[in-house]
Each structure stands twice: as C-alpha cells, then as structure tokens.
Amino acid sequence: MKKIENPILLFKKWYQKELELTNVRIPSAVCLSTVGIDNFPNARFVSFKELINDSFIITGPLNSRKGIEIDNNDKVSLTFWWTETERQIRVQGIATKIEDKLAEKYFAERNANSKAVSLICEQGKEVNDLKLLEDEILKKVAQNERIDRPKNWSGFLIKPLRIEFMEFKKTRFHDRKLYEIENDKWNMKQIQP
C-alpha cells in the first residue's frame, strides 16, 4: 500500500516556499467562502493566522456578515492562490469559534489602528458619515491608551475535511491532488486537470 504525504505537512511546505519567494504585501491573504443567510455563496479575503492542531485559524468580528454566516452554517472553504509558485490550495471544512485566550493573543498582535477599527466599527454595516467615523477612530488612536478586545471580536478554527492541491503547468496539464478524511485518516486521489 502506497503511503501518502500528510496534507497538513504539504501545506506547510508549500506555504513556506511561497513566503520565501513572494513580494506581496499580505502573503497570508486567503479567500474565505461561506454560505450566506440568503443561501448565496459569499467570498472575501481574510488573513490566515496559523495552523493549530491541523486546523486553519482566521480572525474577525463575530457580528460581521462572515461571523453571522458561520454561526448559521459552519461549513466553509478557504482558497489560497500563490503567484510565485503558481499553486492553489482549496480547503473545505468545519468552522468553530476559537477560545477567548487565543482571540486575546491575536487581538494583542494587531496595531493600534486595527484595534480601534475593531472596537468602533460594525463591519459591513451602512454608515451615514464616513468622515465622522474615521475621526472617531483617529481620536481613539491618538489617546494612546490600551484598547481591549471587544467581546464580538474573535476568530475561527477551520478543521479541514478536504484539501485540494493544484500546481499550474504551462501545458495546462495541471497537477491536482485531492486529500479527504475517511475513517479518521487522509486518503489522496489524483484528479484530472
């Protein structure tokens, strides 16, 4: 029986290679897709934080559209596209809220502007006066005081059920491997380009 590579280790190897080669400003950007409360798919770019216990971590407000949609339907996907290595990774999995202690850690790593935006803004909600909102944020930052994590700011741990790795080829004969959890272990299928 052929031993297959652990897809989490393969992800780490591919991600590290891209980080070594890339010049993009936000190399951790990943497209998060959710099922909308109106049953339409929703996709947006978020920042991938790290892998913990073979799960992908992202953060953000729980009362944002993504937070509400994940609360309503925990089936999500992540899509990584890396230009330098010409590779794509698609992850499908189940999202659960991270523990408060971990949310505190990620919030503490944010800069003052990001913290102030998270404290004051209601992500995705309509605003009547954008300048007034911006002034409020700048005033908060200028106070140079500690900004505590709002209770509605946290993150999600995405436990993968499927991970597809694709390496693009000039011939268009792309190399695609699909890993799926079956009976608590990873199985791999080579799939057509």
Rank of each mutant, 00 (worst) to 15 (best):
L133W: 13
P193S: 12
V24W: 04
K2P: 13
K2F: 08
S64A: 06
L21G: 11
K177S: 06
L10K: 14
N42T: 05
N23S: 10
W186D: 10
K101D: 14
Q190I: 14
D148N: 12
N111D: 15
K159T: 13
S55K: 02
S28Y: 03
T59K: 00
V141F: 08
I158A: 01
E122D: 14
K3Y: 08
L161N: 13
S64V: 12
S28P: 01
I181F: 01
N152P: 00
D184A: 08
T59F: 01
K131N: 15
L102M: 08
I37Y: 00
V35E: 08
F11L: 03
P27M: 01
S77G: 15
P193I: 00
T59S: 04
K115H: 12
E99C: 02
V35T: 10
I98H: 00
N73M: 02
F165Y: 02
L161V: 12
K101N: 12
I89S: 02
S33L: 00
A116L: 07
I94N: 13
V141W: 00
T85I: 15
L132P: 06
N187Q: 14
V127T: 14
L10N: 07
P160W: 01
I181R: 09
S118V: 10
N23W: 00
Q143E: 15
L130D: 14
E134I: 11
D71T: 07
D38Q: 05
W81T: 14
E50C: 09
E20V: 00
Q123W: 13
I58P: 03
D148T: 08
K140E: 15
Y106K: 04
F45W: 07
N128E: 15
L138H: 09
D148P: 06
S28A: 04
K101P: 05
D135C: 07
I191P: 01
F173W: 06
L133I: 10
Y179S: 04
V35Y: 01
Q92G: 05
I147F: 05
K101W: 05
R25E: 15
D129C: 09
L130S: 09
F56K: 01
E50T: 10
D74S: 14
I89H: 02
K115M: 11
I68F: 09
A116V: 09
A43T: 12
W153G: 05
L132Q: 13
M1P: 12
F11M: 06
K13I: 03
P193F: 07
N63V: 08
F40Q: 11
D148W: 10
L62Q: 11
V117I: 15
E50Q: 12
